[in-house]
Design a protein around this nucleic acid. Structure first.
Length: 206
DNA sequence: CCTAGGTGCAGAACTGGCTT
DNA sequence: AAGCCAGTTCTGCACCTAGG
């Protein structure tokens, strides 16, 4: 797959992005993990406060659980040749006014950057849509809500017109806040995670 | 041991634009 | 003005971990 712009160049541009400055509670600090060699793309939500502070995607309890779900170590997870991490919003959005969780991801990053970044991946095999915002955006009319999306198991997704379809896995967000959902939907851990782990292992050890 | 901090989902309520 | 629809915002819900 060829593109007009290299992943490294896009990464440099994204790192310097300040488009949402006025709408952010803290300074803009875009957090992504990109490599043209990436085999698995994680489209998450937005960095939490911990990720912002450490300038590292999923550097929090959510990340810990996500790595368990995937069956990978920290080292494997943070190797950009394995996993690209491109959330719906690249900067920490701040807390909701009522304090019950973080604000929804700002809607600037996705239209601004995603379609530039995606064609730079040359070896993409699997995409993980983590959480409702990524699923709403990428599944559009096929979006049935997180629970139903996740139940559908592995399917295929065309991320960009010129690219072949890649395998797709929908996941709920791994945040501890979501324990409510995980307790209600134990089939996810029993039925979906083994499939996911096996697929991930097949890709990163091949 | 106790407390504070961190964290998303689903569904309801609200808002704004469009049609009749 | 009323009704409809789509999109956005608000609210109620549990648990884990780190630090004091």
């Amino acid at each position: 797959m060829q593109s007009n712009i290299s992943t490294a160049k896009v990464y440099q541009q994204v790192s310097q992005c300040t488009l949402c400055h006025a709408n952010l509670p803290l300074e803009p600090k875009p957090i992504v993990q990109l490599s043209a060699m990436a085999k698995i793309l994680i489209i998450g939500q937005a960095p939490g406060l911990q990720a912002h502070k450490q300038r590292k995607a999923f550097a929090d309890a959510s990340g810990k659980r996500l790595r368990e779900w995937l069956g990978v170590t920290d080292a494997q997870f943070y190797q950009a040749e394995n996993f690209a991490i491109m959330p719906m919003a690249f900067c920490y959005p701040g807390k909701q006014a009522n304090g019950s969780g973080d604000k929804a991801p700002l809607k600037t990053c996705t239209p601004t950057w995603h379609q530039t970044i995606i064609p730079t991946f040359e070896h993409l095999q699997l995409v993980l849509l983590v959480g409702q915002y990524a699923q709403k955006y990428y599944l559009q009319q096929a979006d049935l809500g997180v629970t139903e999306n996740v139940k559908c198991g592995m399917s295929h997704l065309v991320l960009e017109e010129k690219m072949p379809a890649v395998e797709l896995f929908n996941l709920p967000h791994p945040s501890p806040r979501n324990n409510i959902w995980l307790h209600k939907n134990t089939w996810f851990e029993h039925n979906c995670l083994p499939q996911l782990r096996s697929k991930v292992a097949q890709i990163i050890y091949e």
